[in-house]
């Protein structure tokens, strides 16, 4: 099996789709000659030419709007919004247009648009380039939301997103572009709405997304040394959500931690906690713990940034809390 980086896996999915299907094309800021600010689309201009690898003006609203128009005309565009912080500029197009047309046209129109974007802290991008805003889009009916955490997942999920007839918000994490994983020789599409159990365990379920999947796996290893068996579940698709896998896991372990880099308040973890308490209430043996960033803008200074965003030790603290081994309930600040 070939080993791909997360960045290469995204590029591989885009390239394979574009080779297979003329309707697929990409557009975004600096994606052509420059190959994108994160280097994801490097080399694609040479292979597919400027008609299918299109540089755009610096207007997220225009980029997404163009993608919506093309999608409604039968194309399968993949637009890149350089930072998810900048989706704010395209909210009208995403929320009021992309998410609504299929419904408002009674199914006569469809919007098979994929909006790739990336974000996240960990490399000092500052308060306007480090946010994790995926939860906003989970709030909007008509959208699908994907947050992939590994190379094989990002490849298979991007493929499924491109070929989904609904607009998909596709989140990548900046610090994951370099991680590597063995991927199948043949691209295997991963259905949207199917969680991945990274690690099976008996005592606590950690539902983690994005970078925190890796932090959770590390924390699970440390917890195991303390005699606590942790199951790590990555939903991969936030909308639609594989509730059954999460709930079944919690019914088995009786304890649940949700972990993401976004702030906990109104975060995706709050939704998971609500689902779990409702569907597995009688199975819970401890309050559900949430792990996320402190509720402040992400600082530029590396030391402060490090302090604000959660790491594996915060996940471990939450795990300990659920099994009643924590020294104090309010130590870390990442755990709610």
């Amino acid at each position: 099996m070939p080993e791909l980086s997360y960045r290469e896996a995204v590029r591989d999915a885009l390239s394979q789709a574009m080779r297979q299907d003329d309707d697929v094309f990409i557009l975004g800021e600096d994606i052509a000659e420059m190959g994108g600010s994160m280097g994801v689309t490097q080399g694609m201009l040479d292979e597919f030419g400027p008609e299918r690898v299109r540089n755009t003006p610096i207007s997220e609203m225009a980029i997404v709007g163009a993608g919506i128009g093309a999608a409604m005309q039968g194309m399968r565009p993949v637009v890149e919004v350089m930072y998810e912080d900048f989706t704010t500029l395209a909210m009208e197009q995403i929320v009021n247009q992309a998410a609504k047309h299929r419904y408002m046209s009674g199914g006569q129109l469809k919007v098979p648009l994929t909006i790739r974007t990336q974000g996240g802290a960990g490399w000092s991008p500052g308060a306007q380039h480090a946010q994790q805003l995926e939860a906003w889009f989970v709030h909007v009916p008509g959208l699908k939301v994907v947050f992939a955490s590994t190379p094989s997942d990002v490849r298979g999920l991007l493929w499924s997103s491109i070929y989904d007839d609904n607009p998909v918000m596709f989140f990548e994490h900046r610090t994951l572009y370099g991680i590597k994983e063995d991927v199948p020789e043949e691209l295997e599409p991963i259905p949207l709405g199917q969680a991945r159990i990274h690690r099976e365990g008996e005592d606590v379920t950690v539902v983690a997304t994005g970078r925190l999947v890796h932090e959770a796996i590390a924390a699970a290893g440390e917890a195991e040394a303390e005699g606590v068996s942790v199951e790590v579940v990555d939903p991969r698709t936030l909308l639609p959500l594989d509730e059954a896998t999460i709930v079944d896991s919690v019914k088995k372990t009786n304890r649940c931690v949700v972990a993401h880099e976004a702030v906990t308040r109104m975060g995706f973890g709050a939704e998971v906690a609500a689902i779990v308490q409702h569907q597995a209430f009688d199975y819970l043996d401890a309050p559900i713990e949430r792990v996320g960033s402190r509720f402040v803008p992400i600082p530029f200074a590396p030391v402060m940034e490090e302090w604000v965003v959660p790491h594996s030790n915060d996940v471990l603290a939450a795990i300990r809390q659920t099994v009643g081994r924590s020294e104090s309930s309010n130590g870390a600040g990442h755990v709610e």
């Binding site: 009786n254 209430f281 009688d282 199975y283 819970l284 043996d285 401890a286």
Partner: peptide, 17 residues
């Protein structure tokens, strides 16, 4: 509620079930 001095008994949902 003797153990809790007459206050609400703290128990997890699973323990209650």
């Amino acid at each position: 509620g003797a153990t809790q001095g007459g206050a609400r008994i703290k128990a997890s949902p699973l323990a209650r079930r």
